[in-house]
């Protein structure tokens, strides 16, 4: 009986991250290829600046390489872990700009609607496609909940900033974000809300 180390193409995200933690640059390279397109899109959306998005992407992946051994599969999925790292770095940059500036940017340029991305023919044909499921779930959220989640997720606004930007009570923002995320979780899991 023999065991075979999967190729980087076959390997799961977790396998790649574990191998990267052990110093495997080819595994890390494959992880970069998988994660960088959605993460770069997210950084561009959050920062609104191509150069800054590139800087954060580079910082983020170097961080992932150095801290891959800290990844704990019991606590998060690899992509979730990566998104959290990159978002924190982007949020740090956004907050460094100052509260007023980021609120003005958010007000002037509403983020790309998470649910507005066109559904591809493949998505329509394949009901189990993960992206299609998430998009459909986002579409299922009430407008206020979706808007507040978009402002926090895509623009890095704090709940205080969102309350000021939308001129609503802080409690309303917290409630909408909580209800929105819980509903999104249920919809993505396929349950009823």
């Amino acid at each position: 009986m023999s065991t075979r180390t999967p190729t980087v193409q076959d390997a799961t995200d977790e396998d790649l991250l574990v191998r990267a933690a052990g110093g495997d640059q080819s595994a890390f390279s494959a992880l970069y290829d998988r994660f960088s397109p959605p993460l770069f899109a997210l950084m561009r959306q959050m920062l609104g600046d191509e150069t800054e998005a590139e800087d954060v992407l580079q910082e983020g992946f170097v961080y992932v390489w150095k801290h891959a051994s800290q990844f704990d599969a019991a606590r998060a999925k690899p992509f979730t872990w990566a998104v959290m790292i990159f978002r924190h770095k982007a949020i740090d940059r956004i907050r460094a700009r100052g509260r007023r500036a980021r609120m003005e940017e958010a007000a002037a340029e509403m983020p790309e609607n998470l649910a507005a991305a066109p559904v591809s023919a493949d998505e329509a044909a394949d009901a189990v496609d993960r992206v299609a499921i998430v998009r459909e779930a986002v579409r299922g959220l009430p407008g206020e909940q979706r808007r507040m989640i978009e402002l926090s997720f895509l623009k890095g606004l704090t709940h205080h900033d969102i309350a000021s930007t939308l001129a609503v009570p802080l409690g309303t923002v917290k409630t909408n974000i909580r209800r929105g995320l819980l509903k999104l979780r249920d919809l993505v899991k396929g349950g009823t809300q």
């Binding site: 960088s36 397109p37 959605p38 993460l39 770069f40 899109a41 997210l42 561009r44 959306q45 590139e54 992407l57 999925k77 992509f79 979730t80 990566a82 998104v83 959290m84 790309e112 998470l114 649910a115 991305a117 993960r130 992206v131 998430v134 998009r135 986002v138 989640i149 997720f153 995320l181 999104l184 979780r185 993505v188």
Partner: peptide, 14 residues
């Protein structure tokens, strides 16, 4: 759930 929201954006190759 939050991380999966990133997948809904149109991917952009750096």
């Amino acid at each position: 759930t939050t991380a999966e929201l990133a997948l809904t954006l149109k991917p952009i190759a750096p």
